[in-house]
Nucleic acid binder design. Structure first.
Length: 877
RNA sequence: GGGAGCAUAGCUCAGUUGGUUUAGAGCAUCUGCCUUACAAGCAGAGGGUCCGCGGUUCGAACCCGUGUGCUCCCA
């Protein structure tokens, strides 16, 4: 077989993905095995996968593949959500640009037809990326939040909650997105610190005659002046007591409004007196309710001034602000302007300043739904990872949750199933027919124009991807629900995670998942969150092209501890690429051996001392068992990056750098068949351990290593064997000696090609029998002997407690030896000192556990022996 | 303003109930090697007041308090 010099991912990846698909390995149907269910957090159809998604999908694939190889019926459901606001905006823009069509000239049905076409065209992009990354999702279960059954589920749930009194319609202060011309929920508004201006405006006190009195009011938003319906001061503020019962005149529109008094006003802010604009500020709105003030909405839905504003009608709010400031200046009503830092709410979707606005919308009552959802997490029934970081956040939000505004003034989404008669009575039902049966009023019924928030559909995701709402108790939902683990970004803990738990508890009476694993945010090297706007997120397909999918997966996982942000650096992808090559080259080496096997069946017996293969194999078998147990533990705790590091080091260091070198036959020599077979089986185990993280290359090598009838992707893990501490210890000791001698060779400039003779001073020659040949090979020694009488041309080193002498054909430098010895000596003396301090402390001896003391005593003896060896050596020099 | 998290090698991070921890890994750096799997590599090495201060303890990177600096969430 001809193997290329280096590993070439592209061909391999395509081949195996197709193969896995053709074998239906990703497909899941209920059976007798325990299920392991994961639902993909639906990326929205407008986008491409960014690095955050990549991390997310990789984590899920690792968990799913590991479960599939561990006796579970693994089911991973892919899908996407319709992203109401973002998608509608894109479709509107596309219609304008490509077809010169104005949305306003289209009927709802026509528009939806275009929207679905658009979704078909662009929705596939993310699926392609998921595939290229190697994700083992069940493609027959692809779900979309606007699928027919899903649509019905959302409608059904709406009606259900309405009938339970958990959904209501009413006029409330909401966040308005003037660009998308729709209401938003509180969570869809992002607050940013901005430098604004505080304008000090004069309001004339009414009926103050020719000696006009003025009060000065500070405002950030002069364009709302026309919506003022009162001004308000603190009742304890003596500056304003004279104004009791008076009215003031709103500038520019000359409207008289009352002066009211309320303790809510902070005397020290601005001038201590506020304008009250109930239509455009939540606090003002509350004051308005308390004092029964009229509400004057001065804004149109697109953020321009409304008729009610009386002036600058139709002008944009920010243009109007400038003009109003000018107007106030000309009239001498502007006292001063001040720089002022404030927080402004921006629409998460369109990035424009969101306007607080009184509006009639549909809301979900959250208090009742929040209770069980909170309990599931505080009781530990749903476990959040990492918990210490997010439990408190979760709890705080649920304890302080406000009602959820779910109506959106859009077409792309589930249309609210509410019908109004001519008198304005509302009837909520799944169909118009049912609504008309409910109708008691007069006239024709007209349906509510609005659609529902996308999150009002995606909160049903773990249920309705299995048709759990539309066909309760079907075979799938009964088998797969509750799902095993939800993997998602911490930024949607409220949008999605909390609401999914609510929905699960409300509609299934059961949590939607056992565990939640929050990944961190992916940031660029400078620590900035990756975003489309900054353009700092690399293109996934480009990265896969350059490094290979396995390397991308490796790179993003190796630096990604649970819940911690990760600074994305292509360096780590490079590390992944190198790792691919390391595996590839190990394969080449082993395949080389396969060409000439010797039938030496004694190769593994301890008595056959010619290669020490028996020790190498014993040791590696134990290391493998040790690591397998370790990796299992780490994966249970979702410490995936540590698990990967552990496997990486097992493969690179223990397998390639040590084990393979130990059993490597000499030049032109054959390898014994039993050793070869053992080695192949170790390689298999390593590939299996690594497979969930790097699926393509492991499957490829698994098949190149030997002819196979099975595939690695479904090869079941056997439980890890026991480990023998003694043999592991011996292995470490061997490595230690090799390293110490190599170090000495390096320090004394003994060239690698040059052989040495090694003399060991030991009381127990026997312990070297099993490793002698390995040792000789690894340090390029032509002979190993035992002697306690070194000649002074030998280099003396102390490895552990034992002295060793290197006989080489060079002049030795005593100082180099001394330096090293003195350095070690100082370290050991300090170490011994710290132990002595403990042991000479009576309270330590009294209080510490027996095994701790025993350990310290052992450490002490050990250190003393080492020190003695070094001191003897030094004095002999 | 309220809350949470973080601070360990030049960089990015591990360090599980306090005791083989006078602290580990990868990258970067330095030295020597084109050794028949791998220069995308091999063999070595150097590098740390575990953010400052105080406390608890026989014993603290780890627990508590406090200060400083970053990050995030909420209003």
């Amino acid at each position: 077989m001809d193997l290329s010099k280096n590993y070439i991912p592209a061909v391999v990846e395509e081949k195996w993905y197709k193969h896995w698909l053709s074998k239906n390995y990703f497909k899941s149907t209920p059976d007798g095995r325990p299920p392991f269910t994961v639902v993909i957090p639906p990326p929205n159809v407008t986008g491409v996968l960014h690095m955050g998604h990549t991390l997310n999908e990789t984590v899920q694939d690792i968990l799913v593949r590991k479960a599939r190889m561990s006796g579970f019926n693994a089911c991973w459901v892919p899908g996407s959500d319709h992203a109401s606001i973002a998608t509608e905006a894109k479709v509107v823009e596309m219609l304008k640009r490509e077809k010169n069509i104005d949305k306003n000239n289209l009927s709802r049905e026509e528009f939806l037809k275009y929207a679905f076409e658009w979704k078909e065209k662009y929705g596939g992009i993310i699926y392609n990326q998921i595939e290229r990354l190697g994700c083992s999702v069940d493609w027959e279960r692809v779900s979309f939040t606007m699928d027919d059954h899903y649509y019905k589920a959302v409608i059904k749930v709406f009606v259900d909650l309405y009938n339970k009194g958990l959904i209501y319609r009413g006029a409330r202060m909401i966040n308005w997105d003037p660009a998308a011309k729709t209401a938003l929920s509180d969570e869809e508004v992002e607050y940013k610190d901005v430098t604004g201006k505080l304008y000090y405006v004069k309001y004339e006190v009414a009926e103050s005659g020719s000696n006009a009195h003025y009060i000065v009011i500070a405002t950030q938003r002069p364009e709302t002046i026309m919506g003022d319906t009162a001004v308000c001061a603190n009742p304890n503020d003596e500056r304003y007591t004279l104004l009791r019962g008076k009215k003031v005149i709103v500038p520019l529109i000359n409207k008289e409004v009352p002066v009211i008094f309320d303790e809510y006003v902070d005397k020290d802010f601005g001038t201590g007196i506020l304008k009250i604009t109930p239509a455009h500020d939540i606090n003002d709105f509350n004051i308005g309710l308390k004092y029964n003030l009229p509400v004057v909405d001065t804004l149109n839905e697109d953020g321009t001034m409304s008729e009610a504003a009386q002036i600058y009608i139709g002008e944009d709010r920010f243009v109007a602000r400038k003009k109003i400031v000018e107007g106030l200046k000309t009239k001498g009503l502007l006292v001063k302007e001040e720089e002022y830092t404030t927080r402004l709410g921006y629409s998460q979707r369109t990035n424009v300043v969101a306007e607080p606005k009184i509006s009639t919308q549909w809301f979900v009552k959250m208090k009742e739904l929040a209770q069980p959802a909170l309990k599931e997490v505080t009781s530990g029934n749903v476990k959040i990872h990492p918990g210490e970081k997010f439990n408190a956040t979760y709890k705080y939000w649920l304890e302080n949750v406000k009602d959820w505004c779910i109506s959106r003034q859009l077409w792309w989404g589930q249309q609210i199933p509410a019908w109004y008669d001519e008198e304005g009575n509302v009837y909520v039902a799944e169909t118009e027919e049912q609504a008309s049966q409910l109708a008691t009023g007069n006239g024709q019924l007209t349906r509510d124009e609005d659609v529902l928030d996308t999150w009002f559909s995606s909160w049903l995701w773990p249920i309705e991807v299995f048709n759990g709402i539309t066909e309760p108790n079907n075979k799938d939902i009964n088998y797969y629900y509750p799902t095993s683990v939800l993997v998602t970004g911490q930024d949607i803990i409220f949008f999605w995670v909390a609401r999914m738990i609510m929905a699960g508890m409300e509609f299934m009476k059961e949590k939607p998942f056992n565990d939640v694993y929050f990944t961190g945010m992916v940031r660029d090297k400078q620590g900035r969150k990756m975003s489309k706007q900054l353009g700092n997120s690399p293109d996934l397909l480009h990265l896969i092209h350059e490094y290979g999918a396995d390397a991308v997966r490796f790179g993003i996982m190796i630096s990604s501890p649970a819940g911690n942000d990760l600074l994305f650096d292509e360096n780590s992808l490079e590390q992944g690429k190198y790792f691919n090559n390391k595996l590839w080259n190990a394969l080449k080496l082993v395949k080389m051996w396969a060409e000439k096997l010797s039938g030496d069946n004694n190769a593994l017996s301890v008595e056959n001392n010619s290669y020490n293969n028996s020790f190498a194999i014993d040791w590696f078998e134990n290391r493998l068992n040790e690591v397998q147990t370790e990796v299992d533990n780490l994966m249970c705790q979702f410490r995936l990056s540590e698990a990967l590091k552990t496997i990486y080091s097992l493969i690179w260091d223990d397998f390639c750098s040590w084990y393979l070198e130990w059993i490597k036959p000499g030049f032109e020599e054959q390898i014994a068949e039993p050793v070869y077979l053992k080695t192949v089986s170790f390689f298999d185990s390593l590939l299996q351990l690594l497979h969930p993280f790097m699926p393509f290359i492991t499957e490829e090598i698994y098949h190149l290593l030997e002819e196979r009838n099975d595939d690695l992707i479904v090869k079941q893990f056997s439980s890890a064997g026991k480990t023998d501490a003694t043999i592991l210890e011996q292995g470490n000791r061997l490595k230690e000696i090799i390293t110490a001698i190599r170090d000495a060779r390096n320090k004394h400039n003994i060239r690698q090609k040059e052989t040495i003779k090694l003399h060991i001073e030991t009381i127990d020659q026997n312990q070297y029998r099993a490793i002698e040949n390995i040792l000789a090979k690894q340090i390029n020694a032509e002979s190993i002997g035992f002697s306690s009488q070194p000649e002074n041309t030998f280099i003396t080193i102390v490895a552990g407690k034992e002295k060793m002498y290197i006989e080489a054909n060079i002049e030795i430098d005593i100082n180099t030896q001394k330096e090293k010895l003195i350095k070690d000596l100082n370290y050991l003396k300090g170490f011994l000192n710290s132990i002595d301090k403990k042991l000479s402390n009576d309270r330590f001896v009294q209080n510490a556990k027996a095994d701790v003391i025993e350990l310290e005593r052992k450490k002490k003896l050990d250190a003393q022996a080492k020190i003695l060896a070094i001191e003897q050596t030094l004095s002999a020099l």
